[in-house]
Amino acid sequence: MTAFQPSRRQFLGTVAASTLVGTAGCLSALDRSSDDQKRTLRLTLSRVGGSLREVFVADLSETRSDRDDAAFRTVLDGGSYTAQYRKPFASTPETPVYTERDGTYYRLDSVVVDEVETTHPVLRLSDASDETETQSETDADSTVTSSELPDVDAKAVRVAQMGARARGNVGGAPWGLLQRGGYVYRDDDQRRASALLGSDTPTHVRYRDRRYRIDVSREQFYEPVYRATVEPVAESPEEMEAILRARFVDARFARDDLSAAARDVLETARQGEYGESHPYSDAYRDVLRAMHKRAYLDGNISKDAGVDNSGRQILRYDDVYYDYRLRFVDDGA
């Protein structure tokens, strides 16, 4: 079989294409470098405290709701505690909840064990600032200010108006608070205290400088039923501290491992904020390496860096814990 031999024209075309690709790559890198030179990467450090236990181990009787304390006591005594809609302890994989009782440390969580079909009132608001207000007594009585409402309704209006303002506009809204575009009255106590859920209710509400039309509908929900779980995880403060270090500390290093210039970077960050634009100094690069932030050094800085900056970030420097934050800021900001 005759081996393939490219013609001179094919060979030159291949070389030219490779050159263009390589040049495009270089130009792309130069463009990224130019963009990065216009931005400052800022590092801030804030001391956490003496131990991680002080931050992450909760005293349920003082720092959490009565329902959390009741759930913990019930399960610890061998009982079963369930709740609808609201998760006991509000524990998540990102923010686990721990507590201590009689020298034993527990992780508090919950599992879904059932589903419930139910109906809840939903308050939605729509902007009525452009509507003409009739000055008759009847129309005047149908408009209230949010400050005149019971606390439960004032909170509902504050949340629902965020949905009204976001509707049709570019931008976000706190969808963790907003549900179905409004505010959901879930508790019986809320419904009993409300002045917006009865038959004789106002048609409009004023919140700050805007007037909103009130719409209340009763809608069907399918909600999970949660069972509280309590799991022992440590029998001593040292064991608990090790668990928290493994869970929350991103990087740890010592003063002696860094150059004097790198230590100055951290000292400046501890006192307020430290920043540089790309390309970074050797000292700043040493600090970023020690923090395992390679994306700021080796990757596509514009796209890769910062993707892991969600949630709480902690490092340990000379046996002291610090919350840290890395963020890009446009020069001049």
Rank of each mutant, 00 (worst) to 15 (best):
D59T: 03
T104A: 07
G78V: 04
T104V: 15
A295W: 02
R316W: 07
D304K: 08
R73H: 09
R245N: 12
S147G: 08
Q37V: 00
D209T: 05
D257N: 10
I314E: 08
D69I: 00
R67P: 00
I301N: 02
R192P: 05
Q161H: 14
V55T: 15
C26Y: 15
F248Q: 09
R211V: 05
T92Y: 02
T63E: 15
L76H: 06
D109C: 06
K87Q: 15
R289Q: 14
P237L: 10
T40W: 02
D141P: 00
Q271W: 06
S126M: 06
H292P: 00
T63P: 02
T82A: 12
A71M: 01
V233E: 00
G13E: 03
V57F: 12
E133F: 12
R210G: 12
E100N: 05
R206A: 14
L12S: 10
A305L: 03
D189Y: 12
V152C: 12
A195T: 10
D102T: 02
R53L: 06
R192Y: 08
Y322H: 15
A193P: 05
R192A: 08
V21W: 06
N309F: 09
E131Y: 15
T143M: 15
S7H: 11
R192T: 09
K293D: 05
D331C: 00
M240Y: 06
Y284F: 15
R186I: 11
A242P: 03
I214D: 01
R107M: 04
R285C: 04
D141N: 13
P279V: 10
H204C: 00
S129Y: 02
I301H: 03
L288P: 07
Y284M: 03
A29V: 04
Q220I: 08
L178H: 04
E238K: 15
L266S: 06
T44P: 02
R312H: 02
R53W: 01
L123V: 00
Q161E: 13
L12R: 11
S18C: 09
W175I: 05
R67L: 13
T23E: 08
A283G: 11
A295V: 05
V113S: 00
S7A: 06
L52S: 06
R32N: 14
R47E: 15
G171I: 06
Y222N: 13
M162H: 07
H204N: 03
T145G: 13
G163T: 07
D36I: 01
Y296Q: 02
R252L: 01
R186S: 13
Y324L: 01
E94S: 14
D151N: 07
V55I: 11
D188R: 09
Q313L: 12
R86G: 04
T138D: 11
R289P: 03
D114S: 13
G299I: 10
A24C: 04
R191C: 11
L178N: 08
R247E: 12
A58V: 14
A3I: 04
G332C: 03
L123M: 09
V287N: 05
S65L: 08
L60N: 01
R218V: 11
F56M: 12
D188L: 11
Q161D: 14
D318E: 14
G13L: 10
E62L: 14
E137Y: 08
R211D: 04
R64T: 12
G168A: 11
A17I: 05
A24R: 03
R210F: 05
V15P: 12
A58L: 10
E219F: 11
D256W: 09
G171Y: 05
T23R: 05
Q190I: 00
L52K: 04
